[in-house]
């Protein structure tokens, strides 16, 4: 089974189906690697602090937003999740429409939804949703 990119709940009405999101398209593009011309060695990209000029571990990195006046606001992952906690855990189906009414221009990246976990209730709710 491909790696789960996200897990949460698929919800419509009061029904909740625990699901995981997995990729439905694979990237077959040719990818090149940066090499050092002098010795042919592969180049590693490191994250450095622009003030201290040393490499920074992943845990010490957070998000910054540049305001119009040039000032910066720092926002953490926890704060981003906190603003809409339900949305970050749930795919809320608001309505069911006819597929033919959705112009292809609105579609973006395809994924599969698969049941999250082996719980019998989850598997049955998943099959029931797919068949309705």
């Amino acid at each position: 089974m491909p790696r789960a990119l996200w897990t949460g709940s698929l919800s419509f009405g009061l029904v909740n189906v625990p699901v995981a999101v997995v990729a439905a398209a694979r990237d077959l593009d040719l990818h090149f690697r940066q090499l050092h011309e002098k010795d042919g060695a592969p180049i590693e990209v490191q994250r450095w602090c622009s003030k201290e000029k040393v490499e920074i571990p992943w845990e010490e990195i957070t998000h910054g937003y540049e305001l119009d006046d040039g000032d910066q606001v720092i926002v953490s992952d926890l704060e981003l999740q906190a603003i809409e906690p339900r949305k970050t855990r749930t795919i809320d189906i608001e309505q069911f429409v006819d597929l033919a009414d959705v112009d292809p221009v609105y579609f973006d990246h395809p994924y599969f939804l698969v049941p999250a976990g082996d719980d019998d209730g989850t598997l049955r709710a998943y099959v029931c949703s797919a068949r309705s």
Partner: peptide, 20 residues
């Protein structure tokens, strides 16, 4: 967003390092 260093709010720079 851009990446910043939690300790001092400084921007994170991507630096290319020769692995050899």
């Amino acid at each position: 967003f851009h990446q910043v260093h939690v300790k001092d709010g400084a921007r994170v720079k991507q630096v290319r390092i020769c692995s050899k």
